Amino acid sequence: MRADGVLFDKDGTLFDFSATWDVWAAGTLRDLAAGVPGRLRALADAAGYDLESARFRPQSRVIAGTNREAAECLAPELPHLSIAQIEDHLMRSSAEAQLTPVVALAPLLDALRGLGLRLGVMTNDTEFGARAHLGAAAVADRFDFIAGFDSGFGGKPSPAPLLAFARAQALDPARVVMVGDSRHDLTAGRAAGMQCVGVLTGPATAQDLAPLADAVLPDIGHLPDWLRGADG
Score class of each variant (00 low, 15 high):
45 D>H: 11
29 L>P: 00
114 G>W: 11
49 Y>D: 01
117 L>D: 01
45 D>M: 07
58 P>G: 13
59 Q>G: 08
73 C>Q: 15
151 S>L: 10
24 W>Q: 09
17 F>C: 09
9 D>M: 06
194 M>G: 00
3 A>C: 14
177 V>Y: 03
45 D>Y: 05
160 A>V: 02
117 L>W: 06
210 A>Y: 07
168 A>Y: 02
145 F>E: 03
32 L>K: 02
163 L>C: 11
25 A>F: 03
48 G>L: 13
136 A>Y: 06
158 S>L: 14
134 L>G: 00
39 R>Q: 10
178 M>Y: 01
61 R>W: 05
193 G>P: 03
88 D>Y: 06
51 L>S: 06
126 T>H: 11
153 F>P: 00
144 D>S: 10
179 V>K: 04
120 G>S: 07
7 L>F: 03
113 R>G: 15
12 G>L: 12
8 F>V: 01
214 D>G: 08
67 N>V: 15
190 R>T: 05
17 F>E: 07
37 P>D: 09
54 A>Q: 15
181 D>P: 06
199 V>R: 10
83 I>R: 11
61 R>G: 13
86 I>W: 03
171 L>I: 07
120 G>E: 02
43 L>D: 00
128 F>I: 07
99 L>C: 05
71 A>K: 00
72 E>H: 03
99 L>Q: 05
178 M>C: 11
38 G>Q: 11
33 A>V: 07
81 L>Y: 12
153 F>H: 15
39 R>N: 12
118 R>M: 01
8 F>K: 01
103 V>N: 10
188 A>H: 00
102 V>D: 04
70 A>V: 00
22 D>V: 01
3 A>V: 15
123 T>E: 09
106 A>C: 04
8 F>R: 01
87 E>T: 01
20 T>P: 02
175 R>F: 05
81 L>T: 04
148 G>H: 08
166 A>M: 10
216 V>G: 06
219 D>H: 15
216 V>L: 11
152 G>A: 13
193 G>Q: 07
67 N>E: 12
150 D>S: 10
212 L>P: 00
115 L>C: 12
155 G>W: 02
44 A>F: 02
230 A>W: 06
130 A>N: 03
19 A>I: 01
35 G>Q: 10
211 P>V: 13
10 K>M: 12
99 L>F: 08
123 T>L: 08
1 M>P: 13
179 V>R: 04
212 L>T: 02
82 S>D: 13
142 R>I: 01
